[in-house]
């Protein structure tokens, strides 16, 4: 058995290597022990004046380290829709920015294979004074596309944004005249039409009215079917459940759970419920303690009153 197992290990390492290589090429995103810290200085607005004054007074800037992402590792194969959930400030958006290469990791390593397109905020690179049509070109160029490529897609983008049904000829008016929903439609249309291999989306689906949201969801599903990889950060748990086939849950910069979306979301909801209950219980306990104190005070007052009555009565 022992000799067998030895040969087995040799064989299995060789196999593992083969599989590793195969998997490597199928991996879209590989995150290894990612840490990302923000160093916030006490000064919100760094100025030369403040720096000189500090120098004269020989002070040092107080630095506070905020650990936005704290030791997260995971892998995403091509064709996965990864949902990222967690409370506000859990580090979801920071994680996404690290994946897109905007924020450099403090520690660890991120490897991304493929052309990345980001939808972290809507209308990046847009100029409010220009028309919707001109902004499509501008937004596309900002995403790193050539004018020819944009010209090819322009029709599809305009059709998708579908502004004409809202207001005739809106595409040729400056974007500062748009409502926020119309603005979001154009921005979203530009973002998803750039057919990236990897799309990183941050809460962008919440833009627009119900009809547009449906359309956006459809488009995202279509992208997923074309073996695109999508990382979706959202508070809309139902959106994540509906769209993703893998899910990670982050809490205070840590990865709590990764796996099937249903399980992860249920666990997250359960945790949230427990948290809320715990908070409620705490609140109730605090209230009870307060009530008790109030009662004790009232009793004390009553006693004093009685004592006074007694004294006055005796006096009288």
């Amino acid at each position: 058995m022992s000799s067998l197992s030895a040969s087995e290990t040799v064989a299995s390492t060789a196999t593992a290597k083969v599989i590793d290589k195969q998997q490597e090429s199928r991996m879209a995103i590989k995150v290894e022990d990612l840490h990302l810290y923000y160093r916030t200085k006490a000064e919100a607005n760094p100025t030369l004046k403040a720096a000189l004054i500090r120098k004269a007074k020989r002070q040092k800037v107080e630095q506070k380290v905020i650990k936005a992402v704290n030791g997260v590792s995971f892998e995403v194969p091509h064709g996965t829709v990864l949902g990222v959930i967690g409370h506000n400030g859990a580090g979801k958006s920071t994680l996404l920015r690290a994946l897109s290469g905007i924020l450099p990791p403090t520690q660890g390593r991120v490897e991304v294979r493929g052309r990345v397109s980001t939808l972290l905020a809507l209308g990046v690179g847009f100029n409010q004074n220009l028309t919707g049509r001109e902004n499509i070109v501008l937004g596309g160029l900002a995403q790193g596309w050539s004018k020819d490529q944009i010209r090819e897609k322009e029709h599809a983008i305009i059709d998708f944004a579908d502004l004409d049904t809202l207001s005739e000829g809106a595409m040729d008016r400056p974007m500062k005249t748009y409502s926020s929903g119309m603005y979001a439609r154009v921005a979203f249309a530009v973002g998803v039409h750039m057919d990236p291999d990897i799309l990183l989306v941050d809460e962008a689906l919440s833009a627009g009215d119900a009809r547009f949201k449906e359309k956006a969801t459809e488009k995202m599903l279509e992208l997923c079917e074309n073996a695109r990889t999508i990382v979706l950060v959202s508070h809309g748990l139902e959106t994540v459940r509906h769209m993703s086939n893998h899910c990670i849950w982050m809490d205070h910069g840590h990865l709590v759970q990764a796996g099937d979306p249903d399980e992860t979301i249920d666990a997250y909801i359960e945790k949230q419920r427990k948290d809320r209950e715990a908070a409620d219980a705490k609140k109730r306990a605090a209230e009870a303690a307060e009530a008790k104190e109030d009662q004790a005070l009232a009793e004390k007052a009553e006693r004093t009153k009685e004592a006074l009555h007694k004294a006055i009565g005796e006096d009288v």
């Binding site: 199928r26 450099p104 991120v110």
Partner: peptide
């Protein structure tokens, strides 16, 4: 793994970005 046909060639997949501490 060996018999599986390789993934359809995706030219952009050659773009590998590695982000490390700066």
């Amino acid at each position: 793994a060996r018999t599986r046909t390789p993934e359809p060639p995706r030219p952009a997949a050659e773009q590998v970005h590695v982000f490390e501490p700066y």
